[in-house]
Amino acid sequence: MAKVLVLYYSTYGHVETLANAIAEGARSAGATVDVKRVPETVPEAVARNAHFKLDQTAPVATVDELPNYDAIIVGCPTRYGRMAGQMASFLDQTGGLWARGALHGKVGGAFTSTATQHGGQETTLFSIITNLLHLGMTIVGLPYSHQGQMTLDEIVGGAPYGATTIAGGQGQRQPSELELEGARHQGTLIATTASKLFA
Protein backbone atom coordinates (compact mmCIF):
# COMPACT_ATOMS: atom_id res chain seq x y z
CA MET A 1 0.00 0.00 0.00
CA ALA A 2 1.49 3.33 -1.09
CA LYS A 3 1.95 6.15 1.40
CA VAL A 4 1.06 9.51 -0.18
CA LEU A 5 1.52 13.07 1.03
CA VAL A 6 -0.61 15.85 -0.44
CA LEU A 7 1.43 18.93 0.43
CA TYR A 8 -0.13 22.31 -0.24
CA TYR A 9 -0.28 26.02 0.43
CA SER A 10 -3.64 27.77 0.04
CA THR A 11 -4.29 31.46 0.60
CA TYR A 12 -8.07 31.53 0.22
CA GLY A 13 -9.05 27.84 0.23
CA HIS A 14 -9.17 26.98 -3.48
CA VAL A 15 -6.00 24.90 -3.43
CA GLU A 16 -7.07 23.37 -0.11
CA THR A 17 -10.22 22.10 -1.84
CA LEU A 18 -8.17 20.62 -4.69
CA ALA A 19 -5.80 19.01 -2.17
CA ASN A 20 -8.68 17.21 -0.47
CA ALA A 21 -10.00 15.98 -3.83
CA ILE A 22 -6.54 14.68 -4.78
CA ALA A 23 -6.38 12.88 -1.42
CA GLU A 24 -9.80 11.36 -2.10
CA GLY A 25 -8.58 10.02 -5.44
CA ALA A 26 -5.41 8.58 -3.92
CA ARG A 27 -7.40 6.86 -1.16
CA SER A 28 -9.73 5.36 -3.77
CA ALA A 29 -6.66 3.58 -5.17
CA GLY A 30 -5.91 2.05 -1.76
CA ALA A 31 -3.19 4.48 -0.64
CA THR A 32 -2.66 5.77 2.87
CA VAL A 33 -2.85 9.55 2.49
CA ASP A 34 -1.83 12.51 4.65
CA VAL A 35 -2.88 16.04 3.73
CA LYS A 36 -0.51 18.68 5.13
CA ARG A 37 0.25 22.32 4.45
CA VAL A 38 3.38 24.41 4.51
CA PRO A 39 3.85 27.25 7.00
CA GLU A 40 2.40 30.68 6.32
CA THR A 41 5.16 33.27 5.89
CA VAL A 42 2.96 36.37 5.81
CA PRO A 43 2.65 38.13 9.21
CA GLU A 44 -0.64 37.18 10.87
CA ALA A 45 -1.96 40.74 11.03
CA VAL A 46 -1.35 41.21 7.31
CA ALA A 47 -2.92 37.83 6.49
CA ARG A 48 -6.02 38.61 8.54
CA ASN A 49 -6.36 42.04 6.97
CA ALA A 50 -6.21 40.41 3.52
CA HIS A 51 -8.81 37.80 4.59
CA PHE A 52 -6.49 34.80 4.20
CA LYS A 53 -8.16 31.50 5.14
CA LEU A 54 -6.29 30.85 8.38
CA ASP A 55 -8.58 28.16 9.84
CA GLN A 56 -7.37 25.27 7.67
CA THR A 57 -7.44 21.94 9.48
CA ALA A 58 -4.45 20.30 7.78
CA PRO A 59 -1.39 20.08 10.04
CA VAL A 60 1.80 21.90 9.08
CA ALA A 61 4.43 19.68 7.45
CA THR A 62 8.15 19.61 8.11
CA VAL A 63 10.87 18.97 5.53
CA ASP A 64 12.29 16.07 7.54
CA GLU A 65 9.15 13.97 7.13
CA LEU A 66 9.13 14.04 3.29
CA PRO A 67 11.27 10.87 2.88
CA ASN A 68 8.60 8.90 4.79
CA TYR A 69 6.32 8.97 1.72
CA ASP A 70 6.29 7.02 -1.54
CA ALA A 71 4.60 9.91 -3.37
CA ILE A 72 4.36 13.66 -2.75
CA ILE A 73 1.81 15.78 -4.60
CA VAL A 74 2.57 19.50 -4.28
CA GLY A 75 0.07 22.30 -4.82
CA CYS A 76 -0.09 26.06 -4.37
CA PRO A 77 -1.60 29.12 -6.03
CA THR A 78 0.07 31.03 -8.82
CA ARG A 79 2.03 34.17 -8.06
CA TYR A 80 3.08 36.02 -11.22
CA GLY A 81 3.13 32.78 -13.20
CA ARG A 82 5.15 30.77 -10.70
CA MET A 83 4.65 29.02 -7.38
CA ALA A 84 3.70 31.06 -4.32
CA GLY A 85 6.56 32.16 -2.08
CA GLN A 86 5.31 30.09 0.85
CA MET A 87 5.80 26.88 -1.09
CA ALA A 88 9.09 28.07 -2.61
CA SER A 89 10.38 28.84 0.89
CA PHE A 90 9.48 25.35 2.07
CA LEU A 91 11.06 23.63 -0.93
CA ASP A 92 14.17 25.79 -0.55
CA GLN A 93 14.73 23.99 2.76
CA THR A 94 15.05 20.56 1.11
CA GLY A 95 18.75 20.97 0.29
CA GLY A 96 19.75 18.31 2.78
CA LEU A 97 17.31 15.84 1.25
CA TRP A 98 18.64 16.71 -2.22
CA ALA A 99 22.26 16.24 -1.10
CA ARG A 100 21.66 12.70 0.13
CA GLY A 101 19.17 11.71 -2.59
CA ALA A 102 16.43 11.08 -0.03
CA LEU A 103 13.59 11.53 -2.53
CA HIS A 104 15.16 9.74 -5.54
CA GLY A 105 12.65 7.55 -7.35
CA LYS A 106 9.64 8.72 -5.39
CA VAL A 107 6.54 9.79 -7.32
CA GLY A 108 5.67 13.47 -7.56
CA GLY A 109 2.91 15.62 -8.98
CA ALA A 110 1.75 19.23 -9.03
CA PHE A 111 -1.51 21.17 -8.87
CA THR A 112 -2.41 24.87 -8.76
CA SER A 113 -5.00 27.62 -9.01
CA THR A 114 -4.99 30.94 -10.85
CA ALA A 115 -7.33 33.91 -10.89
CA THR A 116 -7.86 33.72 -14.66
CA GLN A 117 -7.70 31.16 -17.45
CA HIS A 118 -4.42 32.62 -18.69
CA GLY A 119 -2.88 33.53 -15.35
CA GLY A 120 0.02 31.08 -15.45
CA GLN A 121 -1.42 27.67 -14.62
CA GLU A 122 1.03 25.71 -16.75
CA THR A 123 4.10 27.78 -15.83
CA THR A 124 3.24 27.39 -12.15
CA LEU A 125 2.92 23.63 -12.53
CA PHE A 126 6.32 23.58 -14.23
CA SER A 127 7.86 25.70 -11.47
CA ILE A 128 6.75 23.03 -8.98
CA ILE A 129 7.70 20.11 -11.23
CA THR A 130 11.20 21.55 -11.77
CA ASN A 131 11.86 21.33 -8.03
CA LEU A 132 10.57 17.76 -7.89
CA LEU A 133 12.77 16.71 -10.81
CA HIS A 134 15.83 18.20 -9.11
CA LEU A 135 14.95 16.11 -6.06
CA GLY A 136 15.02 12.99 -8.26
CA MET A 137 11.30 12.31 -8.36
CA THR A 138 9.27 10.62 -11.09
CA ILE A 139 6.47 12.94 -12.26
CA VAL A 140 2.88 11.94 -12.95
CA GLY A 141 0.63 14.62 -14.41
CA LEU A 142 -2.99 14.71 -15.53
CA PRO A 143 -3.16 13.00 -18.94
CA TYR A 144 -6.12 13.24 -21.25
CA SER A 145 -7.56 10.11 -19.66
CA HIS A 146 -9.28 12.89 -17.72
CA GLN A 147 -11.24 14.09 -20.72
CA GLY A 148 -13.05 16.77 -18.72
CA GLN A 149 -10.13 19.13 -19.25
CA MET A 150 -10.93 19.13 -22.98
CA THR A 151 -14.48 20.42 -22.68
CA LEU A 152 -15.59 23.51 -24.55
CA ASP A 153 -18.92 23.66 -22.74
CA GLU A 154 -17.65 25.59 -19.72
CA ILE A 155 -14.60 27.33 -18.33
CA VAL A 156 -12.40 24.64 -16.86
CA GLY A 157 -8.90 24.26 -15.46
CA GLY A 158 -6.60 21.30 -15.87
CA ALA A 159 -3.52 20.60 -17.96
CA PRO A 160 -1.52 17.50 -18.86
CA TYR A 161 0.97 18.68 -16.21
CA GLY A 162 -1.48 18.66 -13.27
CA ALA A 163 -4.89 19.51 -11.87
CA THR A 164 -5.85 23.17 -11.70
CA THR A 165 -8.74 25.46 -10.90
CA ILE A 166 -9.66 29.01 -11.86
CA ALA A 167 -10.52 31.11 -8.80
CA GLY A 168 -11.64 34.42 -10.32
CA GLY A 169 -10.11 37.83 -9.74
CA GLN A 170 -11.78 38.18 -6.34
CA GLY A 171 -11.61 34.49 -5.44
CA GLN A 172 -15.31 34.20 -6.14
CA ARG A 173 -15.20 30.96 -8.14
CA GLN A 174 -14.79 27.65 -6.34
CA PRO A 175 -13.42 24.52 -8.04
CA SER A 176 -16.00 23.07 -10.42
CA GLU A 177 -17.01 19.42 -10.40
CA LEU A 178 -14.97 18.83 -13.59
CA GLU A 179 -11.89 20.34 -11.92
CA LEU A 180 -12.44 18.22 -8.81
CA GLU A 181 -12.80 15.15 -11.03
CA GLY A 182 -9.42 16.01 -12.54
CA ALA A 183 -7.87 16.33 -9.09
CA ARG A 184 -9.29 12.98 -8.00
CA HIS A 185 -8.06 11.39 -11.25
CA GLN A 186 -4.52 12.69 -10.73
CA GLY A 187 -4.55 11.46 -7.13
CA THR A 188 -5.63 8.02 -8.27
CA LEU A 189 -2.95 7.88 -10.99
CA ILE A 190 -0.17 8.93 -8.62
CA ALA A 191 -1.21 6.47 -5.92
CA THR A 192 -1.48 3.66 -8.48
CA THR A 193 1.95 4.49 -9.90
CA ALA A 194 3.52 4.59 -6.45
CA SER A 195 1.94 1.25 -5.58
CA LYS A 196 3.45 -0.31 -8.69
CA LEU A 197 6.90 1.14 -8.00
CA PHE A 198 6.99 0.30 -4.31
CA ALA A 199 5.08 -3.00 -4.24
Rank of each mutant, 00 (worst) to 15 (best):
Q174P: 01
V140Y: 13
T165H: 01
R48T: 11
E181A: 10
A50K: 10
L133F: 03
A88V: 02
M150E: 10
A71E: 05
L152A: 07
L180A: 11
L178D: 01
T138I: 12
T130F: 07
I73R: 01
V35E: 14
V15I: 06
S127Y: 15
A47L: 04
Q56P: 04
T193I: 14
L7G: 06
L132P: 01
P43L: 08
Q174H: 12
G108R: 08
L54P: 13
R184K: 14
R48E: 07
D92L: 02
A61D: 11
P59Y: 00
A84R: 02
M1T: 14
D55A: 03
D70I: 10
G148S: 01
A167K: 07
H146Q: 08
V6H: 05
D153C: 02
E24R: 15
Y69A: 02
E122Y: 15
Q149R: 01
V42N: 02
G158R: 00
G136K: 03
A29K: 05
K3H: 08
V35S: 15
G171L: 14
A50V: 08
Q121I: 10
A88I: 03
R79V: 02
A58W: 00
Y80T: 14
Q117L: 14
I190Q: 13
P67V: 01
M137P: 07
V63Q: 01
W98N: 15
K53W: 04
G101S: 13
L18H: 06
L189I: 14
Q56V: 04
G141P: 08
G157P: 03
D34S: 04
T164M: 03
L133G: 06
A191Q: 15
G157A: 02
V63T: 01
Y12M: 04
